[in-house]
C-alpha cells in the first residue's frame, strides 16, 4: 500500500540531501582556503553558513511536524528522529568549516609557519569521512557507515601528531611562533571534530537501518 506519508518522508530526505551538499561544499571550500591561504574563499564559507543554519531549522520543523501529525513508528520513526540528529551534526560540521575559515583569515597575511603535511592529510580524511557518512545515510548503507566509524581513530592520531609537532618543534623553541602555531593547532582540532561528527552521523545511520545501538560500544563494530 502506498501512503501519502511516504511523499512527506521523501520530501524530508530531499531537504537533508540539499543541506548535505551545502555542508560538503563548505568543508571543501574551507580546506581549499587553507591550502591556498585565500581570504576570499574563507570569507565565502563564512557567508554561506547562514543558509545552512536556516536549512537546519527548516528540517527540524519538518521533523517535528511529521512526528506530531503522523505519530510515526518503527522504521519511519527511526528515520525522522535520526534525521533530526544528523541535521544537528551537519550544522556543527558547517560551523567547524567556518572556524577553519576564521583561522585562515588570522594567518593568511603572514608566511606559513611550516609546510603543511599532516594537516592536509587530516583534511582529506575528514572530507572523505563526511562524504561517506552522508552517502551511508542516502543509501541506507550500514557497512559504509561502519567504515567511517573505524576511521575515527586515524583522525585522533593525526591530530595528536600535529599537536605534538607544533608544541615541541615550534612553540617551545620559539615563543614568538605561538600565535601562528596555535592557529594551525586549532585547525587540526576543528578537522578532528569534523571527523567526530561524521562518526556520530554514521552511528545514527546504523541505528536507523538496523535498529542497533553502536554508539559508545566500539567493540560491537569489530
Amino acid at each position: 500500500m502506498t501512503r501519502y506519508f511516504d511523499e512527506e518522508l521523501l520530501e524530508l530526505n530531499k531537504k537533508i540531501l540539499e543541506m548535505s551538499a551545502k555542508v560538503e561544499a563548505a568543508i571543501g571550500n574551507s580546506i581549499k582556503a587553507l591550502r591556498e591561504l585565500s581570504r576570499e574563499k574563507a570569507e565565502a564559507v563564512i557567508k554561506e553558513d547562514d543558509r545552512i543554519d536556516r536549512m537546519e531549522l527548516e528540517i527540524e520543523e519538518k521533523c517535528l511536524n511529521l512526528i506530531a501529525l503522523y505519530q510515526p513508528a518503527a522504521a519511519d520513526l527511526r528515520f525522522i528522529v535520526m534525521s533530526m540528529k544528523i541535521t544537528t551534526d551537519l550544522e556543527r560540521i558547517a560551523d567547524l568549516a567556518v572556524d577553519i575559515s576564521q583561522r585562515v583569515l588570522e594567518i593568511a597575511d603572514q608566511p606559513l609557519l611550516k609546510p603543511l603535511i599532516d594537516i592536509p592529510k587530516l583534511a582529506t580524511l575528514a572530507q572523505g569521512m563526511v562524504k561517506d557518512a552522508i552517502n551511508s545515510f542516502v543509501n541506507k548503507d550500514p557497512e559504509l557507515a561502519r567504515s567511517v566509524i573505524l576511521r575515527d581513530s586515524e583522525a585522533d592520531e593525526l591530530r595528536n601528531l600535529v599537536q605534538s609537532e607544533l608544541i615541541n618543534d615550534y612553540m617551545r623553541k620559539d615563543p614568538e611562533s605561538a600565535p601562528r602555531a596555535v592557529a594551525l593547532l586549532l585547525v587540526a582540532r576543528h578537522l578532528e571534530r569534523i571527523c567526530d561528527h561524521a562518526t556520530n552521523i554514521s552511528e545514527d545511520v546504523i541505528y536507523m537501518v538496523k535498529a542497533e545501538v553502536v554508539k559508545h560500544h566500539p567493540e560491537s563494530l569489530k
Partner: peptide, 15 residues
C-alpha cells in the same frame, strides 16, 4: 514500536 523484528509487524504499525 521502535524496532519490530518481523516485517509484517513493521508494515502494520507503520500503516
Amino acid at each position: 514500536f521502535t524496532s519490530p523484528k518481523d516485517p509484517r509487524t513493521e508494515d502494520y504499525i507503520t500503516g
